[in-house]
Design a binder for these strands. Structure first.
Lengths: 227, 227
DNA sequence: CGGCATCCGGGAAGATACTG
DNA sequence: CAGTATCTTCCCGGATGCCG
């Protein structure tokens, strides 16, 4: 017997007309923004979200998905047969939240306490390319780079001073990185040479190795604050 | 007798190299971002923060200030005598968080559930001008507008396609608004005519009334999502 | 009065087990 | 696979009280 608690819509909220405060009412609960991050590059199912968000528990994920659906940030959708699988997908407005991740990421990357060697999801790595690409450095560049990151494959296109990422098979890219996201992050952001990562088997490169050497120079972490 | 809990630094965190996740580790707790918002236009003391954040309790404010200080977002500072009063002030890096409020605010303003008639702090109103000013509309505009919002006075300068806000006495501005922040928000964002607000005493205008009529046209809320 | 520390009740988050 | 049920832990919010 479940108590009819639903009629009480007085959940904890800030009661503040400030847009930022309302944003926090919508997506300020723990894990909510990270769930959105994992959906930012396309729909996923429940168990994919669980796998990509280490540490979230099933009931919290359920609650967040319910809350985000009620807020109009995402919808549950049933894929057409034969897959007939249920997925969660951001609404158009949900996809418009990407700048939130970019400014949060750029700001926090300057934190003295930021540790870029922690685990990293595939989506985070792809979004980081869109966030950290230096526009002057990629001016005039056109390239297609593929990523095989375990369950998920991506195609990253650099063109017209911007970086696009889509979940697609990267078979005919100019260059393909294969490995876990943290290894690729070490190469791109940590300055670790490819040879070292290939030697211990955590990274494979196929295709234009010179493009790979240029690729890692296009993404620069902002300097630490107080430096 | 205080238990040595401090040695346990394993507070709830996401353990994620993603910059956005680290930002949430730093400022994702309830009220943390709103505390930063209230400091965004200059230092304040404990009781000012409490007054400007209706609903926060003293111990939570204490915890947030400790956490934000530990994170390097703000510092406690003692004003020089004779005031000798302790204030909390953002660090340079803390001030760099302003884009977070802008993207959160712009995104959430499109939420179907956003209610702009809720209470609003003076800081929120001033920051909203910086967030919502439409660059083409203020191109070529140079103006100085004062605001008397109860305890706090501000001077807003519109120039060079941007909007500056500072806590200063607005005595010799071209135009001065006097009233509570929600009334001014009603005029700027709600399209409520000045005369209606002046009639019930919630707003006073001094100076260039024609400038006031132009002023409210420079700030436009984005359209609701799904419209 | 400003800046906390302490205690308490309610509720959200976390871990585990269980079900269709 | 996609959640639900249950239990525990911890955070949040409110009240009170201490101390400069």
């Amino acid at each position: 017997m479940k108590l009819e608690k639903a009629t009480n819509s007085a959940k904890r909220c800030y009661d503040d007309a400030c847009g930022a405060a309302h944003a926090l009412d919508l997506v300020g609960e723990r894990w909510a923004l990270l769930v959105m991050r994992e959906l930012m590059l396309g729909p996923k199912r429940f168990s994919d979200l669980r796998a990509d968000l280490p540490g979230i528990s099933a009931n919290v994920l359920t609650q967040r998905l319910e809350g985000l659906e009620a807020a109009g940030v995402l919808v549950r959708r049933k894929l057409p047969p034969p897959s007939s699988v249920q997925v969660y997908e951001l609404t158009d407005w949900g996809y418009e939240a990407e700048p939130i991740f970019q400014v949060l990421g750029r700001w926090a990357a300057r934190s003295p306490g930021h540790d870029p060697t922690l685990p990293l999801s595939a989506n985070s790595l792809m979004l980081s390319f869109r966030t950290m690409a230096d526009p002057p450095l990629i001016a005039g560049v056109t390239a297609t780079i593929g990523f095989r990151l375990g369950r998920e494959n991506f195609l990253v296109r650099v063109e017209e001073r911007e970086v696009l990422a889509e979940r697609t098979d990267p078979a005919n890219a100019d260059l393909i990185f294969t490995g876990p996201p943290p290894a690729i992050a070490a190469a791109v952001y940590g300055g670790v040479p490819f040879e070292a990562l290939e030697a211990d088997g955590s990274l494979q490169l196929e295709g234009d190795r010179d493009l790979a050497r240029r690729f890692v120079t296009w993404f620069v972490l902002p300097p630490k604050a107080g430096a």
